[in-house]
Simulated assay, not measured.
Amino acid sequence: MREFSRSLPMALLRAREAVMRQFRPSLRDHAMTEQQWRILRALTAIDQIEVSELARATYLLGPSLSRILRDLEGRQLIQRRSPESDLRRGIVSITPAGLALIEAVAPISEEIYAEITRRFGAKKLETLHAMLRELEMELLAIPVRGGAEEAAED
């Protein structure tokens, strides 16, 4: 068995932690968790989305997503509704207050991205993105051993 520190999952987690360490103070300053921010960012790209699709897009498990959506709705950052055709389905959209929060945090986020790019290098960062996309596609083509897939959660 390979050394623990050399496992791919641990290397990816360490890199993710190093990246998120840069963003967490800004999120905290705006009373946001990483998962809440992830949801709001996903919602800025679309008018509305079904809850199940949002869970897949943000890699959050249903029970956690439900709790987070309840909190975001309580802060009036998102709106939830059920279509009349199927009251079991939930549709989520971002509110003007949610968009205003995104606009407040975005400049800080862009400053952090600029610093990461400056330190790591634009070419290396683009190469990293390309390699991560390639790794994801290659691994998605491999059947999962042992049965059902599970969603990742923070």
Rank of each mutant, 00 (worst) to 15 (best):
P63Q: 05
F4P: 09
R118P: 04
R56Y: 01
R80V: 05
P107E: 06
A104H: 10
E150L: 14
E115V: 08
Q76L: 10
A15R: 11
R88A: 04
L65W: 00
A31C: 09
A151P: 02
I91Q: 07
E110L: 14
P83W: 06
S5F: 09
E103R: 02
I108V: 15
M1C: 13
F120Q: 06
E126T: 11
P25W: 11
M1V: 00
F120H: 15
I142W: 12
L13D: 10
G98K: 03
S64L: 00
L77E: 03
T33P: 01
I39G: 02
A152F: 12
E149V: 10
T127K: 14
A100Y: 03
R2N: 08
L69R: 04
T33H: 15
S7E: 12
L54E: 01
I91L: 08
Q36D: 03
P83E: 05
M20R: 12
V92F: 03
L43N: 03
P83I: 02
L69E: 02
L13V: 07
F23H: 09
T44Q: 14
L139M: 11
L128A: 15
E103I: 05
M10Q: 14
R67G: 04
E150K: 15
Q48D: 11
E50L: 00
G90K: 13
D154N: 11
Y59S: 14
R21H: 09
L77A: 01
A57W: 06
A141D: 04
R89W: 09
S64E: 04
D86I: 00
V51K: 00
A31F: 03
E115W: 03
R81D: 11
S5D: 10
Q79A: 13
S64H: 07
R118C: 05
M1E: 08
Q79C: 13
F4A: 15
L125W: 12
Q22C: 08
A104Y: 14
R21V: 08
M131Y: 06
A97W: 10
S64P: 00
A55P: 01
S64T: 05
A151C: 07
A15P: 06
L40H: 06
T95N: 04
I116E: 04
R41C: 10
R28P: 03
E103A: 06
L140S: 12
P107N: 02
G90F: 05
L54H: 01
Y59P: 02
M10C: 08
R81C: 07
I112M: 04
A100I: 08
M1K: 13
E73V: 05
L60V: 04
E134V: 06
A106I: 09
L140W: 15
L101K: 05
S5W: 12
I108S: 13
P25S: 05
L40P: 02
T127Y: 13
H30T: 05
